[in-house]
Design a protein around this nucleic acid. Structure first.
Lengths: 254, 254
DNA sequence: CGTACACCCTCACGTAACGTCAGGGTCAAG
DNA sequence: CTTGACCCTGACGTTACGTGAGGGTGTACG
C-alpha cells in the first residue's frame, strides 16, 4: 500500500506508460500539476495527482483532445466518480465500434477470398463513426445547460495554468468559509452564509458562465440530489454539500 | 454496384468520414494517390484507391503512423489479403486491451463507491500497453528477414512521392517483361528470363534492401508457397507468380 | 573526496498529421 | 449570366508531444 508516497516525474511516467515529456507538458498546461517540488526543484506527485492522471489517460484513450479534457475536469461540480462512470460508457461504445471494424475486415477478407465485390460505400462506411465529442455533447445536455457549457468552454479556452490555480484557490477559500460557518453553528439561511453563497455564484459567473440565481439554485439542488456530487464536495468537509445547497437555496430566495 | 465509378475528393472524403485535406495530404505523401485528374485538375479516384484507402484507414485506426503504413503497403510482396488478415488480428488485440481498460474503470468506480483504496500501480498499470509497433515487430520477424526490414525502413524513409511512382513504374515494367516472356513461350530458366529476374533483384536492392541471391530465392519461393502472395502477383497476369518464382530460382542457381 | 550513473531541471527547436484560410477556377442548375 | 457547391494550390497555424542541449542532484562505490 503505497498511497502516501510521493512520486518523482520519472517514476510516475514509468508507472503510467507515458514519457516524462508528457508529464512536463501536462504540468505546463495545468492538466496534471504536481503538488510539490523538492528543494532541488524536482516535481513530486501525490495521490490526488495520480487519480487525476488516471482520469486524464482514460479520456485521452478515448480520443479527447487535452483541451477538452481540461474543460471536463474543471467543470463546477466535476466529480471523479461521475467521470469514471462516463468513461465506462464511452469505453463500451468504443468497444462496440471496434467490433464493427472487425466485422468490416471479415467481410473484406471474405470478398477477397471469394472474388466477390464490395461497393465503395460498404468498404468505407465504418470509418469515422466514433467521435468522442458527439458523446460529450450528449453528456452536456444531460448534466447541464447547453448554453452554460458553451460559455464555459469559450471562457476557459485560453486560461493559463495560473488562472486555473487561482480558480482552485478561490473555490477552496469559499469551501473553507462555508466550513467555518458550519463549525460556528451559523444557520445556512443566515445572512453570512447567504453572502458566501453569493460569492460562490459570482465565482462561477466570473470564471465559467453567467450563473443566475435560478441556475445557481438548480446547481445547489444537484449538489444533494446526486450522491456523486455530494460525495465529491463532502471530501472538503462532512456535510458541506447539504449546507451549501441550503445556503444557495436561501440566497436564491432573497 | 458502383465499383467502376470515379470519385472526386469530396465524395471519397464523405464516404470515408475523413476530410478533403486528409486526402490531399495522403496524395502529397504518396500514400493514396488518385489515378486520374480531370481536365480541370480535379483528382479522381478509382477502385484501387478506394481499396488502398480502406487498408490505410484500418492501420490508422490501430495507431500506426502514416510513414509506417506507407512502408507496410509498399513492401515487396505486399498483398491486400495479408494486410486485412493482419489487421483483423490487431483489431482483436485492441479490443482485448479495451476490455482491460473497462475492467480497470470498474475497479476504480468500485473503489470510489466502497471507500477502498487502490494502489498507484493498480490505477495506472493498464495504460500504455497497446503499442502497434510491437505487433508489427512480430510481423517483421514472421514475414521476412529482420535486417532486410530495417534496411528497407531506413532506405525508404525519405522517398518522395515521385520516388514511389518510379518504384511502381519499374516494378510494373519488370512484371510486363516477365509476362511478355511467358506469352512468347520463353522458358523461365532461359537466359532472358533469368536476366529479368536479376533485374528484379537489382530493383529490390536499389529501392528496399540488399537482396542477395539467397534471399531472392527465398522470396521467390514465398511467391508460390503462400497463396496470398501468389494471388497478389497474379493480378498482373495469370501464372506470373509461378513463372517469376522459377526464373528467380534459376537465376539464383547460375 | 572524487567518480560514475541515473535522475532531475529549463529551454527551445523540430515533427507528424492534419486544420484553416486565401485566392481563384469549374460545373451545373435556374 | 448568376449562384452555390465543388475543386485547385499554396501556406501558415495547431496539437501533443519528441529530441537534444546544457547543467544540477542524489546515491553508491572506490
Amino acid at each position: 500500500m503505497k498511497t502516501t508516497e510521493r512520486l518523482t516525474v520519472g517514476s510516475l511516467a514509468r508507472m503510467a506508460g507515458v514519457t516524462v515529456r508528457t508529464l512536463h507538458h501536462y504540468d505546463e498546461i495545468g492538466l496534471v500539476v504536481p503538488s510539490g517540488r523538492t528543494s532541488a526543484g524536482y516535481r513530486t506527485y501525490g495521490r490526488a495527482e495520480v487519480e487525476r492522471l488516471q482520469e486524464v489517460l482514460f479520456f485521452r484513450e478515448l480520443g479527447f483532445a487535452l483541451d477538452e479534457i481540461r474543460q471536463i475536469v474543471s467543470r463546477p461540480g466535476y466529480s471523479r466518480t461521475i467521470a469514471l462512470e462516463r468513461q465506462r460508457e464511452l469505453l463500451e461504445a468504443r468497444t462496440e465500434h471496434l467490433l464493427t471494424l472487425i466485422d468490416a475486415v471479415d467481410r473484406a477478407v471474405r470478398a477477397e477470398r471469394t472474388g466477390t465485390t464490395m461497393t465503395n460505400e460498404e468498404m468505407l462506411e465504418v470509418f469515422g463513426d466514433f467521435d468522442p465529442a458527439e458523446y460529450e455533447e450528449e453528456a452536456r445536455e444531460r448534466w447541464g445547460d447547453s448554453d452554460a457549457y458553451k460559455q464555459s468552454a469559450t471562457r476557459t479556452a485560453r486560461y493559463t495554468k495560473q488562472d486555473w490555480e487561482t480558480i482552485k484557490a478561490e473555490n477552496d477559500t469559499i469551501y473553507a468559509r462555508f466550513l467555518d460557518l458550519m463549525a460556528a453553528g451559523e444557520a445556512p439561511d443566515g445572512d453570512t452564509a447567504m453572502d458566501v453563497a453569493e460569492e460562490h455564484r459570482a465565482h462561477i459567473t466570473k470564471w465559467y458562465y453567467d450563473c443566475s440565481k435560478v441556475i445557481h439554485a438548480g446547481l445547489g439542488q444537484m449538489y444533494v440530489a446526486d450522491v456523486r456530487f455530494k460525495e465529491n464536495i463532502d471530501k472538503a468537509g462532512e456535510g458541506l454539500a447539504e449546507y451549501m445547497s441550503a445556503a444557495i437555496a436561501a440566497n436564491a430566495g432573497r
